[in-house]
């Protein structure tokens, strides 16, 4: 193993330019995949954060009786999917409304001599995969109740939103898969090029009595090292880009989705990316060296 490591280092020193070109190619290729992952992770997180903000608002009629309100509250409390229920009296709703628009006060608000807003219940649902379906069903149940004026939970865009999320996930996975396949081909070809640049040396080694493993092991170690370095540089590049985007656009993002921030790929993804870069380096070298050591090639 020491001899192989020594040979690997010696090979790299002798063919430093080809080695660096291979590392650069792997870096570029993995940066594309990594950026893709960052986009995927952030879009997914954005959609999830956004979807968490969906609430069911039950607007009450102004003439709702105490009994009707109690019945409604009991019905809501009995639903195990409801995480919290907040009652907002019409006075509070009106005060909130006026506060929100206080900066651009219009005569229209001042001229109003009555409170046009109804009292309401804001219902938050527990997170689950079929949360939207549950909200929809519960809304249907409440729709006919006495004392309920109307319901709001973004039913118009909720279905479209769900479909969009599913489409985005499938699209990203499919494109990511194709990209990975492309990467393997690019990296395998790059490593093959580095072999061609040393074809003479490999042939000579075979002619002067090197064992196949003596030739194979250093080249495979080199391939793995190329992959690892390419992976590390790619991650560094992506981190740099992520930080840049975060500094530049974090404010805009927070205004769209509160509590949301530009994320870097998670640790499992980082290890996955590094492991696959090493694996691809190894596979690329293995395929290339096998061709060189095959009897057909030796002839």
């Amino acid at each position: 193993m020491t001899t192989s490591a020594h040979t690997t280092i010696s090979n790299i020193k002798t063919n430093l330019q080809v080695f660096l070109i291979s590392v650069a190619t792997i870096t570029v290729a993995f940066s594309i995949l990594g950026l893709f992952l960052v986009v995927f992770v952030n879009l997914n997180s954005f959609l999830t954060t956004w979807s968490k903000q969906v609430q069911l608002i039950v607007y009450l009629k102004d003439d709702i009786s105490q009994n009707q309100r109690q019945g409604l509250e009991q019905l809501i409390s009995a639903n195990s999917d409801v995480e919290s229920m907040t009652f907002i009296p019409r006075e509070t709703a009106w005060a909130n409304f006026k506060n929100t628009f206080s900066s651009n006060k219009s005569d229209f608000i001042d001229d109003l001599t009555f409170n046009p807003l109804p009292s309401s219940y804001n219902l938050k649902f527990k997170p689950s995969n079929d949360r939207f379906i549950k909200i929809h069903r519960f809304a249907d149940l409440l729709k006919g109740r006495k004392g309920v004026e109307s319901l709001e939970y973004g039913e118009k865009w909720l279905g479209a939103f769900e479909k969009f999320m599913l489409f985005i996930r499938i699209f990203l996975l499919a494109v990511g898969g194709l990209l990975t396949l492309g990467l393997i081909l690019i990296i395998s070809n790059t490593i093959k090029l580095s072999f061609y640049s040393r074809q003479e040396e490999i042939e000579l080694m075979l002619l002067i009595g090197a064992t196949p493993n003596f030739i194979r092991v250093p080249f495979m170690m080199e391939g793995m090292l190329q992959g690892l370095l390419g992976g590390i540089f790619a991650l560094a590049l992506i981190k740099f880009l992520q930080l840049y985007v975060k500094i530049q656009f974090q404010g805009s993002l927070e205004s769209i989705a509160r509590g949301m921030e530009f994320q870097f790929i998670s640790q499992p993804f980082i290890f996955g990316l590094l492991a696959s870069s090493v694996l691809i380096g190894w596979v690329g070298s293995f395929i290339s060296i096998r061709q060189f050591l095959s009897p057909a090639h030796k002839k």
């Binding site: 040979t7 080694m205 002067i208 009595g209």
Partner: peptide, 8 residues
């Protein structure tokens, strides 16, 4: 030396 190296 290469011929010696390849035979270990």
């Amino acid at each position: 030396a290469f011929a010696q190296e390849v035979i270990g």
